[in-house]
Design a protein around this nucleic acid. Structure first.
Lengths: 198, 198
DNA sequence: CAAAAATGCGAGTAAAAGCTCATATTTGAA
DNA sequence: TTCAAATATGAGCTTTTACTCGCATTTTTG
């Protein structure tokens, strides 16, 4: 009987191994020589055999989806914690911009290559849900700043931030001092220009 | 002796065949079923044999680079023609936004997949030169609007436009009425916010 | 301790895709 | 018309890579 990837055999150990595999994929993505992200390479980097890898993930796509989910969850956690402690709406949006920059530059090469993958992969709903959740949180913060902010505006803001930050990593792997300034201009400029009451 | 791709054997015919091959690649990229862009598929779509294809291009990368160059040249031509006839600086920038939207939506699926390829391919200088030229033209127009506009600002504008338009094609293959409005807000909002004199 | 169940292993399989080269066809000059 | 140079052809070679499966090892059970 051909094996379906073995179900959570002994929860704790299994989850740890999954995390190791996911991190191995991340380490390959951030390697400067840009080695190709093959399943064999992931298994080797994780220190397990290729056969074992397929006991924890049904296929390669699932590994990358899990990595994406991990990264988005990190973003969400940072946003939740950091946004709560802000007082003014403007400060909350500023905090979001800082978080987005810090996250992408914490592992710039990985983030870059992962964003490319994100577009070619077609993701399952449970992963997309996290992406939607991020936009929802952004919308919540926006509405403190502009009461009539819409979901479309939140999506635009996220799109602009991702594009400008990603573009920035392509030129330089450490954040230039002006990136924050330019990104703030883009975000707040957009908000002011699109706000009807002005 | 292994064959170097034959040099312009009979100029006219050769260039025509090259164009046919490039267009075949474009047609595969825009097909709704998203078939994989293999050299064999390109040759078949072009109505020539795989062997002949390799007489016109040294490798697959060269085909995609040529397609990118073709698209960027179309953009440049549209910008050159349309910008010249504008009077006000604001109208010129508006024209650029319209051109960018129209171009991407003229073949939305192709543009989308091509932009992904653009990032994984590493392009030769002669192709990158066109991309730089587009940014230079944008800068020229920006400087009519803001005399102290910088190359960084032009890059940001291009980045924002590409990201928002591309994001828009992902949701819907025909341009929503509000895209122009939102993109204008992003561009002019950024310019106003970043302008020091205010 | 013995048997059985669970897990680990990695050589090997199969499919996809870039590219070649021996052969066939066409073209153009004499 | 004749022949050689130029061009077209596509079967198949080669590499890459996702994934399998029979066996070894470890862990659990009785």
């Amino acid at each position: 009987m051909p094996h379906t990837p073995r179900k959570k055999p002994r929860q704790a150990r299994s989850q740890a191994t999954q995390a190791i595999i996911i991190e191995a994929a991340a380490r390959i993505l951030e390697a400067p020589s840009e080695p190709s992200l093959t399943t064999n390479a992931i298994a080797e980097k994780a220190g397990i055999s290729i056969g074992s890898l397929y006991q924890y993930f049904p296929d390669k796509r699932a590994i990358l989806a899990s990595l994406l989910r991990r990264e988005w969850q990190i973003m969400l956690d940072a946003m939740s914690e950091n946004i709560r402690r802000q007082t003014s709406a403007k400060a909350a949006i500023d905090a979001f911009i800082d978080i987005a920059i810090a996250h992408q530059f914490s592992r710039p090469r990985m983030s870059q290559r992962l964003e490319l993958l994100e577009q070619s992969l077609d993701l399952d709903d449970d992963v997309l849900a996290l992406s939607v959740e991020i936009q929802t949180r952004v919308l919540t913060v926006l509405q403190r700043y502009l009461p009539d902010a819409s979901a479309d505006m939140a999506r635009d803001i996220v799109t602009i931030c991702k594009a400008m930050i990603n573009d920035s990593t392509r030129m330089d792997l450490t954040p230039g001092a002006d990136l924050k300034h330019r990104l703030s201009a883009a975000v707040f400029g957009y908000l002011q220009a699109i706000s009807p009451a002005r």
